[in-house]
């Protein structure tokens, strides 16, 4: 199964929120994908197909996943949905 990893500085608040929103989107589109969240340090040792995070986070994770999804605003669910669908399409 594909794995999405959501990352933020502490791996507690923001990434967890994004994970809940991503799960909602995945349910909507009927995709079965494993989603998890963690902090920046742990992300580098984690095997994920897609990493999601804000720009300041993803810029430090280049090369650690096949696809990086860069969000400008973690509250913008519509934007996140488009970007996640686009990222998933690369694995079809």
């Amino acid at each position: 199964m594909l794995k999405i990893l959501v990352v933020c500085g502490n791996g507690l608040g923001s990434s967890f929120l994004m994970e809940m929103n991503i799960n909602k989107v995945l349910k909507e589109i009927g995709a079965k994908v494993d989603v998890d969240h963690c902090d920046l340090t742990s992300a580098k040792g984690y095997k994920a197909n897609i990493i999601v995070g804000t720009k300041d986070i993803t810029s430090q994770l280049v090369g650690y996943a096949e696809v990086l999804v860069e969000l400008n605003n973690i509250l913008d669910i519509a934007d996140m949905k488009n970007k996640v669908i686009e990222a998933l399409a690369k694995f079809e």
Binding site: G9, G13, S14, L17, L75
Partner: peptide, 9 residues
């Protein structure tokens, strides 16, 4: 939500 939500603004 947690405080980093305002950082991107």
């Amino acid at each position: 939500l947690d405080c980093p939500v305002v950082f991107p603004f």
